[in-house]
Design a protein around this nucleic acid. Structure first.
Length: 265
DNA sequence: ATGGTTGAGCGTCAA
C-alpha cells in the first residue's frame, strides 16, 4: 500500500500536478493539506476521474483544508472535529479497508505559527503550541493504538538534520526547541518516524523549500516539515519511502513536495 | 535587520 502526503497549496490550481503525481507514483491513498477550497467547490469529478473513488474532505474559503483521496474503500472517522476550539479544517481521518484489517489514518495540517516564537506577542505561535499539546493529549488517551498511520504538514522540523542549518534555525519558527520538543513528545512511543526509519538521523532530509529563493536547488535551504508516522506494530511492514523532490521543479510547483510511504500490506 | 515569493480573491492575510 502506497500512501502519499502532500501540502498541495491549492488543489484547484494544481490538479494537473496531482495527475502527474498519480501517473508517476500510483499511490493508493493521497493525503492533501492546504487544499484551499470550500467543500461545495471541491473538484470531486476530476478526482474520481483520476481513479480515486473514495474521497473525504474538509475545506474552507481561502485557508487550510485537508482531504484524503483513495482507491481503497474508506470509512470517515468522525472524531475530534474541533482542535483548539476551532473548526478550521486542519485534520481529517479515516479507516482504510486494507488486507489484514483496517488501517487508521490521520491527516494533519498543523498551524505554521507565524514569525515570532513567543506566544505573548504572537497568537499564531500560541495556537500552534496549543494544537500540538492537544494532539499529544488526544493520542495518548488512545489506549493500544495500532495499525495507525499519521501524516501531514506538521510545520515542525524536529531533528538537527531536518533543516539546512541547525544553528541558524534554532530561533526560527518550525525549529525552535519548544516546538521540536513538543513534536517529539507527541510522537513519543506512540509512533515511529517512518521517514527516519529509512534515512539515518545524520543525513539531511527536507520536504519543503521556500518560494523565496531564486533557485531552490542551489540554495538548498530546505526543511523537513512533512511527516509520516506509524504505530510500532507496523514497523515490520515499512517497505520503502520516497521524497518526490522532482515535484519542486514541476510547473507552478507547491513549496512542499509529496512524500510517499510504501507498506507491505 | 530585512526582504525575498506565492495563493485566494479582492481586504490584505497567511504561509
Amino acid at each position: 500500500m502506497r500512501i502519499v502526503t502532500w501540502n498541495i497549496n491549492s488543489l484547484r490550481l494544481r490538479l494537473p500536478l496531482l495527475s502527474r503525481l498519480i501517473a508517476d507514483y500510483e499511490p493508493d491513498v493521497i493525503c492533501l493539506q492546504e487544499t484551499k477550497v470550500p467543500d461545495d467547490l471541491f473538484p470531486l469529478e476530476p478526482v474520481i476521474a483520476l481513479g480515486y473513488r473514495h474521497v473525504i474532505y474538509a475545506g474552507m474559503k481561502s485557508y487550510n483544508g485537508v482531504a484524503i483521496l483513495s482507491r481503497l474503500p474508506l470509512n470517515r472517522l468522525h472524531v475530534a472535529q474541533e482542535w483548539c476550539g476551532k473548526q478550521d479544517c486542519r485534520h481529517i481521518s479515516a479507516e482504510i479497508d486494507a488486507r489484514g484489517g483496517p488501517i487508521e489514518l490521520h491527516n494533519f495540517y498543523i498551524p505554521a505559527g507565524g514569525d515570532v516564537a513567543d506566544r505573548d506577542v504572537n497568537v499564531k505561535f500560541g495556537h500552534k503550541m496549543d494544537f500540538l499539546a492537544e494532539a499529544q493529549t488526544w493520542f495518548s488517551a488512545r489506549k493500544n493504538l495500532s495499525r495507525t498511520v499519521l501524516v501531514g504538514d506538521l510545520n515542525v522540523a524536529p531533528l538537527e538534520h531536518d533543516v539546512w542549518s541547525h544553528r541558524q534555525l534554532l530561533t526560527v519558527v518550525s525549529h525552535t526547541p519548544v516546538e521540536t520538543e513538543r513534536l517529539l513528545a507527541w510522537q513519543g512511543k506512540t509512533f515511529v518516524d517512518a521517514l527516519r526509519h529509512f534515512v539515518p538521523a545524520s543525513e539531511k532530509l527536507y520536504t519543503w523549500w521556500s518560494y523565496r529563493n531564486q533557485d531552490w536547488r542551489i540554495a538548498n535551504r530546505g526543511r523537513r516539515l512533512d511527516h509520516i508516522w506509524a504505530t510500532p506494530d507496523l514497523q515490520g511492514q515499512l517497505q520503502r519511502h520516497a521524497i518526490l523532490q522532482d515535484a519542486r521543479d514541476w510547473p507552478q510547483p507547491s513549496d512542499h513536495v509529496p512524500v510517499m510511504l510504501e507498506l507491505a500490506l
